[in-house]
């Protein structure tokens, strides 16, 4: 077993692993005392590694989940950008740019995951998706707004880690995309009405209190403005339910 390589791998997905490993081994060794050390060291090491791996595999889980969504987006824009007579000339540059980012996100996540990266699934789309621009736009909006909510829903699982920063850096780019696609559809760039479609993508967005503070009462602004000012997260089950028809 190449321990050094192992630590590097763990470090690659979990910036604090080595530190935590050091802390756990110090603590375990202190508790065991020097007499027990000689016989128990391999056991201690194994349990430390299990803890580290448990942590790192949960990070891997998050990254593979993100990668799956990015595969979907990347695949979607590749097909859309390649389709003849779908995207009007005036909007080509916009979707080329969005597609470029999704391809980069896939490469970035695959690079971070290495051999642990999930393979790209085969995706399927509704019949009119790549022949009718309005259908294409609607689905693009759904994917982007879902992406924003999905990354937000995982932030807590990456608390304090370097990889959180990368996830946030992707998250805000998805929000830029969402804003642009929504505006192309004649909507506001921010999630606004309570009856936005598709409904599952916007379930739970109609929130007017944050951290127990009623923001309509506090600010005197309308419920619409308050809802728009905060994007809500979506958990993995809800996101996968949205993505399921395309998988």
């Amino acid at each position: 077993m190449n321990l050094f390589k192992l630590f590097q791998d763990i470090e690659a997905v979990d910036g604090d692993a080595t530190e935590r490993l050091g802390y756990y081994s110090r603590r375990s060794l202190l508790r065991l005392g020097s007499k027990a050390l000689a016989v128990s060291a391999p056991t201690v090491m194994a349990s430390v590694l299990n803890e580290a791996y448990a942590q790192s595999s949960s990070v891997q889980d998050v990254l593979n989940y993100a990668l799956t969504l990015e595969y979907l987006e990347d695949d979607y824009y590749q097909k859309g950008n390649a389709a003849a007579n779908l995207i009007p000339a005036a909007d080509k540059a916009i979707f080329t740019q969005i597609g470029k980012h999704e391809t980069a996100h896939v490469a970035l996540l695959r690079g971070a995951l290495g051999s642990a990266a999930v393979a790209k699934p085969a995706f399927k789309y509704p019949a009119a998706t790549f022949t009718d621009y309005q259908t294409f736009l609607l689905l693009a909006q759904a994917f982007e707004d879902t992406g924003v909510r999905a990354y937000k829903g995982q932030a807590g699982n990456l608390l304090g880690m370097d990889v959180l920063t990368t996830a946030l850096q992707i998250h805000s780019v998805e929000a830029r995309h969402a804003s642009e696609v929504r505006r192309l559809r004649g909507l506001r760039g921010w999630v606004s009405a309570t009856d936005e479609a598709p409904a599952p993508v916007y379930a739970g967005e109609a929130v007017t209190s944050q951290a127990g503070v009623d923001l309509v009462a506090l600010t005197g602004k309308s419920a619409d403005r308050v809802r728009e000012a905060f994007d809500e997260p979506l958990d993995r089950a809800a996101v996968l339910a949205i993505a399921q028809p395309y998988l």
Binding site: K152, E174, A175, R176, H177, A229, F230, D231
Partner: peptide, 18 residues
Amino acid sequence: YLLLAGKIVSVEARHAAA
């Protein structure tokens, strides 16, 4: 707090794009 910051940053990004 992290989640609250996350709820706001994407709205700022929507503004930036608009």
